[in-house]
Design a protein around this nucleic acid. Structure first.
Lengths: 104, 104
DNA sequence: TTGTATATTCGATGTTCGTCGAACACGAAA
DNA sequence: TTTCGTGTTCGACGAACATCGAATATACAA
């Protein structure tokens, strides 16, 4: 874990295409779906079968897209859904997350 | 134009990740946005600055993802939004299309 | 039949992506 | 201090992607 703070884009810098791209990967979709809105999830609590380096990559994609926020907690890391996303694109994440279960 | 009929996937074969991926490209997002629901749009009526071969490629991606339907009309081609998409993933396309204008 | 307009397919090019293992950086514990 | 646990970064790989121009196939018009 680097001591540098995580980069999180400004609300207005979030683009629709980038959000949709971030959500268009099955692994990332599973990640986002397993984060309860308003709550934090431990980094290593995701049931995705990828290497840690790959998971870190996906987290970065979601973070850069403005979907999730990462917070350092000592050696560990907690992630959560960014409330700003629903301000920028109201209803989008809700619409997607509502449909995920019937896909899997 | 090939005489072969266009391939359109079955409703249940449409996956959320594939739809999101199809919509995650700016050109394709512009295409979808300029198709009025319930109406047909002429192939060459899209204001996207790409070569015809590129446009054809994007149409194929959207078609394979289950987002649009293509119909031959003599030498020409008309496209429309697939109503089945809203049956498979209710509210998804509506949520996206509602947000496109504020992006551009 | 010959020619024209329309869209698809093909081949090529450069880019982006998802994945991994190895190496690294940091905080915390021993 | 040394060790261990946790994520990140780096380098590499093959696959997928966006783009184009050229060639092609088809329907229609002259």
């Amino acid at each position: 874990m680097a001591q540098e703070p995580y980069f999180h884009p400004e609300i207005d810098a979030i683009t629709l295409a980038e959000v949709l791209h971030a959500l268009s990967d099955p692994v990332r979709l599973a990640i986002v779906q397993s984060i309860a809105p308003g709550e934090e999830t431990a980094w290593n609590a995701f049931m995705v079968n990828v290497a840690p380096s790959t998971l870190s990559h996906h987290m970065k994609v979601l973070r850069n897209a403005g979907v999730i926020a990462s917070r350092r907690d000592g050696t560990r890391c907690s992630v959560s859904l960014r409330p700003e996303l629903s301000e920028r694109f109201p209803g989008l994440l809700e619409a997607v997350l509502r449909l995920v279960p019937q896909t899997a």
